[in-house]
Amino acid sequence: MSDTEQLPATAVAAAPEQLTEPRRRPAWLQNPAAKYSLLVVWAAMAAYFWFAVPGGLFHTTGTFRSIFGSMQAMVLVFLAMSAVITLVVGEFDLSIASVMGISATTAAVLGGLHDVNPVLACLAAIGVGALAGAANAFFVVVMGVSSFVVTLGMGTVWMGVAEMVSHNNYVSMSSPGLKSFATTSVLGMPVAFYYGVGLALVLAYLLAWTPLGRSMIFIGANPEVARLAGVRVAPIRFGAYVAGGVLAAFAGILIVASVGSFDNSTSSSYLLPALAAVFLGTAVIQPGMFNPLGTLVAIYFLQTGILGLQLLGYDTWIQNVFYGLGLVVAVTLAKVVRDRAKGA
């Protein structure tokens, strides 16, 4: 933290029209109430669990690892980033979980049942993800069909295909090399945790600092403005779907690698948490915008809440309730704070 002046929220709220600003605070310090409120709630929640969970179970390194390094969290990071890419360009992709499923099934079936080299199996899985993304893009971008309809339909198709290929069974694939690719411990955390953080950082950089990223944001904000400014709108939208498919495939590979098997029937349970995290992420860091770092924070926020509640003795149903409530309440709060800061 720097020693820049820390202004109370009220000073931020009063922002009259000024021609010149005396001294601008850096961007990340402007309007802190709207940007970091979720972080404060997160801290408060963690503090509560710290004292409320009996037997000091919450303050163990095991807890820390299950929040930040659980397989579920890592898979969610990749899946949520996949959703971010399409949402940023103003598209919706409801097929990400199914694409993850078909990719994971591809890898597991090829590597486990047919003894294909694990690297090749994973490449095939990525290829399937890219193909699924391209199929979505074809219907949405080229044919101009609503992205809601297309991705819902294609998602269902992939789910069915995955059932067919796996005969609706667990497919195991034991490959020590692949397992270490995901679970090798680095500084106490599985290496895949760093992949997720790295991915979020790269994506955040792409969106903030490259022409491609800026163009994507403009396409999402107003495609006609982007087109009249010379941005090639259609290829970028197409590419966003393909990239989203590839990231979903990575999520699938992570499951196969860390668990050593894949159960296709679980894939759809990842969709809502991933989307919830993305929308919850619009309440942090860059309020009102889909942003990778905010999404990352949101995922860990949700994981913390669920783990804490489970340690308090709640059953697994609390997971869905918390995902849902957390999303609605946090986004509402962020909107209220943001409207207040604008000073009406």
């Binding site: 944001i217 403009f218 904000a221 107003n222 403005v225 982007a226 941005v231």
Partner: peptide, 21 residues
Amino acid sequence: ITDGLAVELSVRDNLALPTMR
């Protein structure tokens, strides 16, 4: 509003768009 500017983005971002590449 519809063809000229992305109103949900900042003045700076809008100004920079055509010269970005």
